[in-house]
């Protein structure tokens, strides 16, 4: 009896999830295969003829290979930001968890503030212009680091709390200096949470639209999210190309999802169990 009910429930869940979640994705893929006239109909139909390759070529070569440049920019932005972010956040998380001083309260307050307060965009632009980094990729890297630090520090700090302090002390007795303790003992032990950090923050920064919109104006340093946004007005009549673009920029998160699903979920659910 319960078995039959369970089957019904499963079937219902699968059908429902299919309609709600799979249809939109299938729609994107189908559109990417269509030609311009068929795409114009915006319907959920089987493509007449195979136009995926020509669509990709057209999207990529549009506006002087802009999408390719954007992919390179997004990759540089993501890799550089996440690399520095991971190291800096781990350093802060480590000392913050280990060393109790009267500044800890202030630091924790600033971290929580960073999670809550929306960045003040125009003053940031004013500041970036002041130091000559506005519209530059490395300026954007620093901004992404600044905005992502609080979450990464919290992830690290929670994990470092699970590494016994005796581990550091054993290393100190063995003759390790502070940098040895951090780089040879603690950082290797942080590997699981580092992977989580890398994956979660890579996806977030790669998908970031708002901040590049403000801080990376112009085409030279556009990221993939910006090109998609720009194409939206340009390809008003070529839905096949617009959806090819969407399909292309969904590939990196898809790959990450396939390989690192567990770590992403671990990172995003940190804190769900214990306040």
């Amino acid at each position: 009896m319960t078995l039959i009910r369970r089957y019904w429930l499963s079937a219902l869940a699968i059908i429902f999830s299919g309609i709600v979640f799979l249809v939109p994705f299938s729609f994107i893929i189908l559109m990417a295969f269509k030609d311009r006239t068929q795409a114009q109909l915006l319907d959920f139909s089987w493509p007449q003829g195979m136009h995926l390759w020509s669509n990709i070529v057209e999207v990529v070569t549009t506006r002087n290979w802009m999408l390719l440049t954007a992919f390179i920019n997004s990759t540089i932005l993501t890799v550089a930001s996440v690399t520095l972010l991971v190291i800096f956040a781990a350093m802060v998380g480590f000392v913050l968890q280990r060393r109790k001083t009267r500044f800890n309260g202030l630091i924790e307050f600033l971290i929580l503030a960073g999670l809550m307060i929306p960045p003040a965009v125009v003053p940031t632009i004013w500041l970036l212009q002041g130091i000559g980094l506005f519209g530059k990729l490395h300026g954007m890297v620093l901004v992404e680091i600044a905005y992502s630090l609080p979450f990464s520090i919290l992830l690290y700090r929670a994990f470092i709390a699970t590494i016994p302090r005796e581990m550091d002390e054993a290393a100190i007795i063995d003759g390790a200096r502070p940098l040895d303790v951090f780089f040879r003992i603690v950082l290797p032990l942080l590997w699981p949470v580092t992977v989580t950090n890398i994956v979660v923050q890579s996806v977030a920064i790669f998908n970031d639209f708002t901040n590049p919109l403000y801080y990376l104006p112009g085409n030279a340093n556009a990221t993939v999210q910006l090109t998609l946004y720009n194409f939206q007005s340009q390809f008003q009549t070529s839905y096949n190309l617009l959806f090819t673009n969407i399909a292309l920029i969904t590939i990196p998160p898809l790959i990450v999802f396939l390989f690192f699903n567990r770590q992403i979920v671990a990172g995003m659910t940190a804190g769900a169990v214990k306040g």
Partner: peptide, 27 residues
Amino acid sequence: PRDRGIAMVFQSYALYPHMTVYDNVGF
């Protein structure tokens, strides 16, 4: 500590989990 000529055995042993026994002893 490293210049005091001491060695210490901890309650939890505090072995470095990412190193082999050989590397632990030789660290």
